[in-house]
Design a protein around this nucleic acid. Structure first.
Length: 607
DNA sequence: GGAAGTACGTA
DNA sequence: CGTACGTACTTCCC
């Protein structure tokens, strides 16, 4: 047995590293004496779905607040058996982003998500309930290193968590490449690995009492853990890729890119270099004036659109073709497992409002929305069809019912068009015989912009509405929807006094006092997220999880058996829809063909 | 090699 | 005084 020590604020953390099977007696004693354990794994990478082609677990670590054990499970089958035993023996496992370690444990040790999830306490969830702000927003952040720095000790955070960077330097490789390369018995590696479960254990005990009483009383802790489990099950299932379709698009986009790069090469060497483009356009006699945030000359799409020259067209087309190919089609192909499936990485509390973020091979939240071009790459199972069920007007309905605004509620109850109503309030009645107000766009822009916490400027910039119309519509909004105005003021007042607002689910969200206008948006966005989260949990309880593929904000994508699609879609939509403070948030399904893209190609698609 | 800055895709 | 994200690229800096 190797024993390492880490000195920490006059305390000494003890890290036991099992070297031979004889050491396991002491390990077993430790596990039996500690029913609540910090837990972590080290592996060869993040691609747990490739466990049949190269992905391996290397170490399994268990600890309490002062002592841990590192089992180098990659070198000894008995260590592996001991890790499996410990996972099953533990009453509680505390891990940071425990979903990842659950995937690793399932794939490499055979201990399933279903076994692990009920005993998991995830410090990432606790951290978000306490303070969801990132480091850039002057909050604690969400990574283990950031949290240790904020809540435990800055020196320990940088020393221990910086060690992987230092090891990478020693091995002369990039930080991202060190994980499979570092020697099993490298002491710096073992120290890094061994302290992780100790930090997780300590963090939980620091964070637990900081979870707001209201959030705890509402059961948010258990709720978020159950949600993370269902999400993990979706990650495990993955999404089937139509590799042939993706390959076809890749070839097409490559050819297009080459053609336009050829055109542009008369003027610039690198179409991605803003510097070269600015020079080239100046040589050609165009005066650029638009500035970026930092005050440099901008060459974004708006600037390029304003320049009537073959170079600007070539740059736009070439960059777009390259970006689409790499970001979506190649990501899907490169991310496929041996069964032709991709596994999204879903962060159930990605945003400070608790919205999901989805990253990796299927960055679903960034797919172009106007048609099925990208989404055709993802297909339902053999004999299945893709179904998309989304909530109708969720955020505006949340705004109406949370604020109990009589005018807005009446519009929704009578199934009237809210954007028209805002337009009428600002510009007078519609012309007889018309279904849409001639200034409906201004009404629509205003309704959304206010929900974002914006002003008239947001309406002009974001929705292309003339300045005068935007100003008038925004003024009319606040005079018409007095309930919303009152609610927004109430939230601002809460934020001003306490620094926080509470959402409908009793989630506490910090609001920057210099940006009180964002309070309304935080409430709406976060409450809407929780309505989708509620739907996911209810669908799980009703047995829909094997068919669920992805949540995309106010939409859930399914793969349903073709012959049962109509019945299951209806059932799922009824489970999803929810009456929030007296107002129904309706859910509507669209049944496509096999690919996700086919849903968007439907004639009467809302998409 | 990694951080910062820029741009652009989404709800 | 327009919210929340992820990805890919170049340039800057150590």
């Amino acid at each position: 047995m190797k024993v390492l020590h880490y000195k920490f604020r006059r305390q000494i953390l003890r890290i036991n590293v099992a070297e031979t099977s004889w050491d396991l007696d002491r390990f077993i004693d430790f596990i039996e004496a500690n029913p609540v354990l910090g837990f972590d794994t080290e592996s060869t990478g993040l691609d747990w779905w490739n466990s049949d082609r190269g992905f391996r677990i290397r170490l399994a670590q268990f600890g309490n607040g002062v002592e841990s054990w590192v089992l180098p499970v990659e070198v000894n089958a008995q260590f592996k058996a001991a890790a499996i035993w410990a996972l099953r023996k533990a009453e509680r496992l505390i891990a940071h982003n425990g979903t990842f370690d659950q995937h690793v444990s399932e794939r490499t040790l055979g201990v399933t998500l279903e076994e692990l999830a009920p005993k998991m306490l995830d410090t990432k969830i606790f951290a978000h309930l306490v303070d969801p702000r990132g480091v850039k927003e002057f909050g604690p952040g969400a990574k283990l290193e950031e949290l240790v720095k904020y809540y435990i000790d800055p020196v320990a955070a940088s020393e221990v968590k910086g060690s992987m960077a230092s090891i990478a330097k020693r091995y002369k490789v990039k930080k991202a490449e060190i994980w499979p390369l570092v020697e099993t018995w490298d002491e710096e590696y073992l120290l890094y690995a061994g302290t992780d479960p100790i930090w997780a254990y300590r963090l939980l005990h620091v964070l637990m009492p900081k979870v707001p009483a209201r959030s705890r009383a509402s059961g948010l802790i258990g709720w978020e853990h159950r949600l993370a489990h269902v999400t993990a099950l979706m990650e495990r299932t993955g999404y089937l890729v139509d590799a042939e379709y993706a390959a076809m698009r890749i070839a097409e986009l490559k050819a297009e890119e080459e053609q336009w790069v050829g055109v542009a090469s008369q003027w610039v060497e690198n179409i991605n270099s803003d510097k070269q483009l600015i020079e080239a356009f100046h040589r050609l006699g165009f005066k650029l004036t638009k500035k970026t945030k930092k005050g440099n000359l901008s060459v974004d799409s708006e600037v390029l659109d304003s320049i009537d020259h073959p170079l600007s067209e070539a740059v736009k087309k070439a960059t777009k073709a390259a970006k689409w190919r790499k970001t979506w089609f190649e990501a899907a192909i490169n991310g496929m497992d041996s069964q032709g499936r991709v596994h999204a990485s879903m962060n159930t509390l990605g945003a400070r409002t608790a919205r999901y973020s989805i990253s990796g091979a299927i960055a679903a939240q960034t797919f172009p929305a106007k048609d099925g071009y990208v989404r055709h790459s993802f297909i339902a199972e053999e004999g299945h069809v893709t179904v998309s069920i989304d909530f109708g007007n969720m955020e505006l309905r949340v705004m109406a019912s949370a604020s109990n605004d009589p005018v807005m509620l009446e519009a929704f109850h009578a199934d009237e068009d809210l954007h028209n109503i805002t337009a009428i309030a600002a510009f007078g009645p519609m012309e007889p015989g018309q279904k849409k107000h001639s200034k409906r766009a201004a009404g629509k822009g205003t309704n959304f912009a206010i929900g974002f916490g914006g002003t008239w400027r947001a309406v002009t910039d974001g929705f292309g509405v003339p300045e005068e119309d935007a100003k008038r519509a925004v003024e009319a909004f606040w005079c018409t929807y007095l309930g919303v105005a009152k609610f927004a003021e109430k939230l601002k007042g809460d934020a001003r006094r306490t620094g926080y607002i509470y959402t409908a689910t009793d989630r506490r969200l910090p609001v920057d006092r210099r940006r009180l206008y964002s309070a309304l948006n935080y409430y709406i966005q976060s409450t809407a997220r929780d309505i989708t989260a509620r739907a996911i949990l209810h669908l799980h309880a009703a047995g829909f999880t094997p068919w669920m593929r992805l949540p995309v904000h106010d939409e859930i994508v399914f793969s349903f058996p073709r012959e049962r699609a109509a019945e299951l879609t209806e059932k799922a939509a009824r489970i999803m829809e929810f009456t929030f403070k007296g107002l129904l948030i309706p859910a509507d399904g669209e049944i496509g063909d096999r690919s996700w893209g086919s849903v968007l190609d439907l004639e009467d698609s809302k998409h």
